Simulated assay, not measured.
Amino acid sequence: MRQRSGDVSLLRRLNSAAILRGLRESGVATLSELARAARVSRPTAEVVMEDLLAEGWAEECGEDQGGGQGGEQGDRRRGRPARRFRFRAAAGHVVGVGVGASRLRAMVTDLDGAVVAARHVPGHPSTPACDRLDAIAGLVGAVVAEAGLTVPDVAAVGVGTTGTVDGSGRVVKSVALAGWTGLDLRGELSRRLQAPVLVENDMRLAVLAEHWRGQARGRQDVVYLFTGSRLGLGLLIGGRPHRGAHAASGEIGRQPGDHWRAYRHMTDYAISVEPGEMRSQREAAEFAIERARAGDEQAGRAVRDFARHLGEGLITVVTPLDPELVVIGGSLSKAGDLLIEPIRERFAEVCLYPPAVVASGLGGECIALGAVRLALEQAERQLFTQAT
């Protein structure tokens, strides 16, 4: 078959993508190692590497900075030092955004996920949708500028939001944010931001963050419970966040009985102690946890009852799914064993194979961090199929 110029261009892009992928996975590598990994000749690898160096995707590093086992044996015999290269993560950046009822968070990271800038601003559930959209766009612009970039410079913007989100980035339903139900969130933000935008449900991104950087690393089947101003679930099945047939996986909604009405233990305690003080569910829970840590027995009972009640609700999910791990996340995860131990005890009483139960260490950054991972996946797909 006669080879056309388009075929040469495509082959070069494929070779470039393969070598760049090998460089990313190896950390530091020689030309010979990269050629073997990409299944190309060493001269081809050398030509591609010069292009990657010129465009800033790779950088050369010294002999004392590691390298593979094989090395450049032929070069060494001829007296030349082996050239070693590494992927340059700072060549690209992504943005992750978490959209909550009371706060917007955003962070910029390089292609290794290292945070280079982060910001958050307050919000309110009743804020009109157009104002919230403008606030998100403004926050992205501000955090990108803090990183020394412009919005068109970033490879992708990932956004995690409360509510049921379909595959097109439309919010099918949201009970927490005014004007959010039916909103084409991806489309609206794409009109405001000169960068590719991806949108996903916040709980799926939270469990994605745990799998990437948190307690669920190396696990395949995980239940994530978010505790804060509300309760939410994220499910990791086979190493991937589970969406469900209608993108509603993990939505607790209204349940028969009262498995998920656990906050009443905390709110009842807070009212009994300070009846004139108005607190949200989260504030009442934090108040009770603080008093329990200080040795208040009544507060300790309230926290324990709260945790046992959470355990009851989790059993309805844990028993049929048989996960390896349950992660308690959100702002109340800082309660640690005050919440974890009662849940473990309840699982031990009921479950055939009780999963491990741990508190998340990601705090309030979990959703924005999951949005970063979502954006990085998009950037990597583009980078490793269309390099140079």
Rank of each mutant, 00 (worst) to 15 (best):
R119T: 15
V143K: 09
R103D: 03
A118I: 00
W180S: 15
R192T: 00
A142Y: 06
L183Y: 07
A156I: 03
A114P: 08
P122E: 11
D166G: 06
V108E: 03
V144N: 10
G158Q: 03
A101R: 09
G187V: 08
V116E: 15
V165C: 06
D131L: 12
D112S: 05
G148C: 04
T162A: 12
A145R: 09
E146F: 11
L133S: 01
T150C: 06
L183R: 10
V121M: 01
L189E: 12
V165F: 01
S168C: 08
Q194E: 03
E200R: 12
A155I: 00
A135C: 06
L193Q: 14
S174T: 06
R105M: 03
G169D: 15
G100M: 06
G160E: 07
G98Y: 01
G141F: 07
T162G: 13
R191M: 07
V140I: 00
L139K: 07
A137Y: 01
T161P: 05
D166I: 01
D153K: 12
V154Y: 12
A155T: 04
L104K: 03
R132V: 01
D134H: 11
V151H: 02
L133E: 14
T161V: 12
A195Y: 11
V121G: 09
E200C: 02
R204N: 15
R170C: 02
G98R: 01
G179Q: 07
E146G: 05
R204K: 15
A142I: 02
V140L: 01
A135L: 11
G160T: 05
E200K: 03
G182I: 06
L193H: 13
R186T: 04
T150F: 00
V197K: 04
G160M: 04
A117Q: 13
T181Q: 06
A106E: 07
V115H: 14
V97C: 02
A178C: 05
D153M: 13
V199N: 11
L133V: 05
A155M: 09
G123Q: 06
P122K: 10
T181D: 10
D166M: 03
L111M: 07
R186A: 11
N201L: 10
G123H: 08
A156F: 11
P196S: 04
G141K: 00
E146Q: 14
T164H: 04
L149A: 09
G123A: 03
L193S: 12
